[in-house]
């Protein structure tokens, strides 16, 4: 645990088991809100939690799904879709959000910097 925490620039936010498969949670990383998504058993993604369409910090509470090859989350407020890999908002590209570095290490979920 110790060495994980000290890994430069990465923040341990939770355990993989803290996230129900195919849902998201929100993590506080240096005063910023980051939405963390678990897709299936082990795939992880992170985006800004703030949805610019709604002006509310809610993306972690959206439904996860796929559109063609893209893995997306739908905002719970007005249902726009955000690409989990890039943060691109499919319906309103100017309202895209940042994607964050994320990795899984021995059951720990770590967030890095915005991509």
């Amino acid at each position: 645990m110790e060495d994980v925490l000290t890994t430069q620039g990465w923040t341990l936010v939770c355990e993989l088991d803290d996230i129900v498969p195919d849902t998201g949670v929100c993590a506080l990383v240096d005063d910023e809100q980051v939405a963390v998504f678990r897709v299936g058993e082990r795939a992880l993604y992170a985006l800004d939690n703030f949805d610019p369409n709604a002006g509310a910090a809610v993306l972690s509470r959206g439904l996860i799904g796929s559109i063609g090859d893209r893995v997306v989350v739908a905002s719970p407020i007005y249902k726009q879709h955000f690409d989990l890999r890039t943060g691109q908002c499919l319906e309103v590209p100017e309202h895209s959000v940042r994607a964050w570095q994320i990795r899984l290490e021995g059951g720990h979920v770590l967030i890095g910097h915005p991509l």
């Binding site: 849902t23 809610v58 509470r61």
Partner: peptide, 19 residues
């Protein structure tokens, strides 16, 4: 069933514009 629910059903409450 949890991951199937719209935010409203997931948190058993109605989400409002500010979250």
């Amino acid at each position: 069933h949890a991951s199937l629910q719209d935010s409203n059903d997931y948190f058993l409450a109605n989400i409002q514009k500010d979250g």
